[in-house]
Design a protein around this nucleic acid. Sequence first.
DNA 1: ATAAAAATGGAGTCGCAACTACAAAACGAC
DNA 2: GTCGTTTTGTAGTTGCGACTCCATTTTTAT
Lengths: 208, 208
Amino acid sequence: MTTQLSERRELTPKGRATRERIVAAASDLILEHGMETAKLEDIQSAAHVSASQLYHYFTDKSALILAVIDHQTAAVLGQHRERLERLDSFDALEEWRDFIVASIESMDCVGGCPLGSLASSLAEADPIARAALADSFAQWQDLLRDGLDSMRTRGELRADIDTESLAVGVLASVQGGLLLSQTRRDSSAVRTAVGMSLDYLRTLRVSS
Amino acid sequence: MTTQLSERRELTPKGRATRERIVAAASDLILEHGMETAKLEDIQSAAHVSASQLYHYFTDKSALILAVIDHQTAAVLGQHRERLERLDSFDALEEWRDFIVASIESMDCVGGCPLGSLASSLAEADPIARAALADSFAQWQDLLRDGLDSMRTRGELRADIDTESLAVGVLASVQGGLLLSQTRRDSSAVRTAVGMSLDYLRTLRVSS
DNA sequence: ATAAAAATGGAGTCGCAACTACAAAACGAC
DNA sequence: GTCGTTTTGTAGTTGCGACTCCATTTTTAT
């Protein structure tokens, strides 16, 4: 999922670094303070760049936001891919759950899910951003489905389960749990919600 | 959960009607177009009121938003209370699930959950709003727990289940499912996600 | 009926955040 | 080196959305 229709002509290493610095700062500020609160000026200070630099790399704010979506998508999917590919046991699923809980705890439950928060803020405001985030969720769902498929192949899960639907349900429990935890500033909601999903998966073991 | 610390002195019936009209218009616009896109001016036109009226009833925008939270909380909890109190069977749970799916379909998946969207938009921007929405979610969770309690009392569910945790998990699947459906503009995600939660509850029947 | 209070109309002001203009500096190719 | 391109600095400008002022009409209380 590339953001730019016409990929940027040429970017020197320095330019690429500056661009990345801007996107990273924007991602952090938007996550921690919300889309509305994160002013372009704050992003400039955080990234140590001037206005002209910002507009040299992005045509306008919505272009920057699309870059933030790509950035956060790569970051989140990267972290989860590590843990979800070659999923081989329920222990691995538990570790994945613990990783999610630890992630939000490390932020003191501020920001919630980077992708979920972006989706909620942008779904009705920017159709292109909405489509991009729908794609991000689809990729995440694929990761989960592939993981469940591999567990099924290994004989950890029954052969007749619908891994695609299960992936939707598990992803929803992650998103909903993170939203509740973010709102409550208490990680127990995600832990419980994802835990329930995993408990359900346990009822689908072959040995059961 | 009352919004105003000092409750408004006196409001004539006409005044109350105008205030309600403003809150209703604000609720609709914020839900359908997002928090950022919904300008005060749009709300004025939609409610057929002038700026002076808006500021006669609300000190500022954030006060209006708190009123919107109260309004949506009452609306959502009202609808769900009808279906969740005296929950007596899995059929009733299915009907509740279908109601959620029908609700978002009637909006063509625009807006998602009124409370979830508000929570995500405001969690990092307005601490008071965040706390109010945490309270709304807590009430919703109580409704679910009470429903599950009554099913347990009737002997539909096992005696040893933790209805509080289950309520968290089910609520998370609703919120996450609605977010995915909103982002995808396709109601199948909520249907699947909540369906999975109910499937899990079925594994907790006494007869199972 | 009349006065006080509440509700409304409409034309403002004002701050500020997004965006721009233009020139200077750094860099890369050769 | 040196010329064209990329990157950056320092100012702006501007549009718009939140909020205000004050006069006027409508309602309520007695």
